[in-house]
Design a protein around this nucleic acid. Structure first.
Lengths: 343, 343
DNA sequence: CTGAAAGCGCTAACAT
DNA sequence: ATGTTAGCGCTTTCAG
């Protein structure tokens, strides 16, 4: 038997006042006598009144909810990012509604429309690997609902963004390998429709050129950067007449695949082949050899994204000046890219 | 300039029909002529109508949202669990609202009340490490809102539960070490107010007794199971006149702390000390030596939790028969508990 | 099959 | 300082 839900009208009736007075008392509005305010709040607590925010949301046309869409929740980068968002959102009294696209464009679209129908006040997105058109975000732009992209952004869309400088990071990773004495540096990239991967790759290419090293087509493989992709890629490379002596991987997972394969067949890291990954996954400092990589400040990016989004929501003026916040990456030098002299 | 929001009344006016007819058409109710249904849907698509689910929710007193409260989002077990929940929820047309308690009771309470005010249809919870009273869940029980606990459950609360058999798992881990020839087995436990940790510990104790091994107080340390706790615990153990020759750790993180410390000071694993962890974290199969551990099926637990919760929501009868679903753990034997003959 | 009317629970004018 | 009234956008009787 469902207990009848308690509303402000119940309180109003009991105390012989109007519902609007109860509402004011509950929100300590300035226009309320201290006496009634106290009376109302005391009684509300006594009978266990809990506001129905759905009703309030409808009336105020504001839900204090923000949506997040990520490819996968259970990936360290994303779950740390979400954790950062949640921290700020909670502090500022927003709910966080989370969905994962599973890297499927169709699911991403459904999610985005569904979040719109839920009247979220703002949306934070990292695109699916498939996403090559952005019509589903128009709804938010047309209705002036703030939108922040991070990590995998929509380059053609005019919105706020939280990113790291992938070009610079790719450049730095590659330069590091060059400085360590490696001469034939290969690269495993993710899908280059995604800006993050094309930028990392371009940074890699630029670094080679700036150091008068040749850019060889056979030294660049594009994949989905899974562990198996790493293994397949290194096999490819080893078949070449002059295999590379170092590899800059688009992420740590593919680097892991390489490391495990090379260990299996007895090629030494970093003596024979040096490796740098990307992201600083939790395992990267724990495997043998430990993996050099670029750390992205996921949690802090989440905090920044939430702060920016909520700021946009709360001073809801049409921003003409979309911000692109570039967060710093950190090159973490570990064993996989040490030179002989370091060892 | 905010575009005026499009409602069913706009459609009704344009097509000279009643709003209720539009509503019926949009939900292909049985009582609607095919002609009007098509006309309405075509026009709705044409002008880009999107339903306001907040309004619908208020009217129907159902939000199709479920809440999840976990201690931390960015922990593999929890993010995988959430991922499983999200998968099922999406399939069944539910939103998932996620919050993290950060292991703080006060935050957990706030979250739970806030989710109630958001009129969620059901709630999935793993308790904070601090939680020792459960009054905040009464609200849900009194109002007949389904509640599913998982992992860190409330033993005194009569609800549905998704768990693994921690007692059995602790027993199995310990028995495994005994079978491998270890004689002096220590245990690092988490806070024993949490059933999962007390059960693992009790399984450990039972296994010792069943094998006629002494249960020594100085071989059992209770901590928060962080990496540093692992390091501190092993230091403690090594100070004893007869230090243990194996350790069953309440989680993989503390086991990691032990492994790194033992490697540093040159004690060999598993020759000198054998180790078994708990959870099969992503790093556990990658570190050296690889860590023996008990795998919990996090993603599948999330799926099960969501399925059970949604079933409860949709046939909203008062269940007198709360279910406790026990999911299987898997003992994964890796290098850290191999005996000499295995090596 | 369609329309009219009421109302989910709350808040924000506008009065007093 | 408080009450009255009118919705927010939708669904669901109840009539016809």
């Amino acid at each position: 038997m469902k207990r009848k839900t308690i509303t402000i009208h119940d309180i109003a009736k009991e105390l012989n006042i109007a519902a609007s007075t109860v509402s004011r008392a509950l929100h300590n509005s300035p226009n309320i006598s201290k006496a009634t305010a106290e009376k109302v709040n005391a009684y509300a607590i006594k009978i266990g009144y809990r506001p129905n925010w759905i009703a309030s949301n409808l009336r105020k046309r504001k839900t204090n909810s923000i949506g997040i869409v990520v490819p996968q929740i259970n990936r360290n980068f994303f779950s740390s990012f979400i954790s950062g968002v949640e921290k700020i959102a909670f502090k500022k009294n927003y709910n966080v509604i989370i969905s994962q696209s599973n890297n499927l464009l169709e699911k991403e679209k459904k999610i985005v429309y569904s979040l719109f129908s839920n009247q979220i006040d703002g949306l934070i997105v990292s695109l699916s690997m498939q996403t090559n058109e952005f019509s589903h975000f128009k709804l938010f732009q047309e209705n002036n609902i703030p939108l922040v992209f991070f990590d995998r952004i929509a380059p053609s869309l005019n919105t706020d963004r939280i990113i790291v400088d992938d070009f610079e990071a790719g450049y730095r990773a590659t330069t590091h390998l060059i400085n360590q004495g490696y001469k034939r540096i290969a690269h495993i990239s993710g899908p280059t429709v995604l800006e993050i991967y094309s930028s990392r790759k371009n940074g890699y290419i630029k670094a080679l050129k700036d150091n008068n090293l040749p850019v060889k087509k056979e030294y660049i493989i594009t994949s989905h950067l899974l562990k198996e992709d790493g293994e397949n890629s290194i096999k490819q490379f080893l078949k070449l007449k002059t295999p590379p002596d170092a590899i800059f991987c688009g992420n740590d997972t593919s680097a892991l695949g390489i490391i495990m394969y090379l260990k299996k067949i007895g090629i030494k890291i970093p003596e024979d082949i040096g490796i740098v990954g990307f992201s600083d996954e939790p395992f990267s400092g724990l495997i043998t050899p430990t993996l050099s990589t670029l750390r992205q400040p996921a949690f802090e990016m989440g905090e920044k994204a939430a702060e920016l989004l909520i700021e946009r929501i709360e001073k809801n003026e049409n921003p003409s000046d979309f911000k692109t916040i570039v967060m710093p990456t950190t090159l973490i030098v570990r064993e996989s890219s040490k030179t002989k002299k370091d060892l």
